[in-house]
């Protein structure tokens, strides 16, 4: 195994946590500090009055920004850039959205069921114009259940590294290499949880199928939207978003 000794496992923990801190987009303290900053009733209705396509375009841009940070996270993970480029792309294509969904629990406030979006906190109603009430509800529910685990920043770092480095993604050319990296990251995560007496967290993490299902719901909704507004997607959606999802 590439990371056999305790020192090497500890170095990997440090690498993952540092990579995450450098690419987390918004610092946790800032997200917590902003919690009192809620969208006013007028601001919420202005979001609700937007056309479906404008709101989709906005969300596609916000999601793409978040994904760019996940790409940077991946690039800094020890071993990721040593994988062949096909596998780097397979892992990011399959995992970037899942990582964004996990990261979202930091931007979610369970006290009032709001999420930080474009500078303030708002609830599900903020996204009504998208016409995807069920998907938005599922994403909020997911954030709610994950935020109940009170994951530390280091735990989110290690957990999301494992969401990304998943040797079971179809289409990998060097599956063994990804397996080795995944195995090292599992050791690192377990080691960190042991050290902080948090092993109980492992059994409470959401099943992989839950993230997969949220991602496929997003793809389904995008397909419907793209069918109705092909020109909007073609002309106004970020190229990276289209590359990953459409």
């Amino acid at each position: 195994a590439p990371y056999a000794s305790l020192t090497e496992i500890e170095h990997l923990v440090q690498n993952v946590c540092k990579s995450y801190r450098e690419t987390c987009q918004l610092r946790l303290e800032e997200l917590l500090r902003q919690r009192a900053n809620l969208f006013s009733r007028e601001e919420v209705s202005s979001y609700q009055r937007k056309s479906e396509w404008e709101m989709w375009e906005r969300c596609a841009h916000r999601l793409t920004e978040a994904i760019q940070h996940v790409v940077e996270f991946a690039k800094r993970l020890s071993g990721f850039m040593e994988l062949c480029q096909n596998d780097q792309i397979i892992l990011l294509k399959a995992g970037a959205m899942e990582v964004v969904l996990v990261r979202m629990c930091r931007a979610y406030n369970a006290d009032n069921h709001t999420v930080f979006f474009e500078g303030k906190y708002g609830g599900v109603e903020l996204f009504r114009a998208l016409g995807c009430g069920e998907l938005i509800g599922s994403i909020f529910d997911f954030s709610h259940s994950l935020s109940a685990l009170r994951l530390s920043e280091d735990e989110i770092a290690l957990y999301t590294a494992l969401v990304l480095i998943n040797a079971n993604r179809p289409g990998l050319q060097e599956k063994r290499k990804v397996e080795q990296l995944q195995c090292s990251l599992e050791l690192a995560f377990h080691h960190h949880l042991c050290k902080t007496h948090r092993q109980g967290v492992l059994a409470q993490l959401p099943p992989k199928g839950r993230l997969r299902s949220l991602c496929s719901q997003h793809l389904e909704k995008l397909q419907v939207f793209q069918h109705l507004h092909p020109i909007v997607v073609q002309a106004a959606f970020p190229p990276l978003y289209k590359e990953l999802f459409s």
Binding site: Q68, V71, K75, Q85, Q88, I89, K93, E243
Partner: peptide
């Protein structure tokens, strides 16, 4: 096929 992703990945390791 994954032009943007390729570019982002090749764009230095920082």
């Amino acid at each position: 096929k994954h032009r943007i992703l390729h570019k982002l990945l090749q764009n230095g390791n920082s």
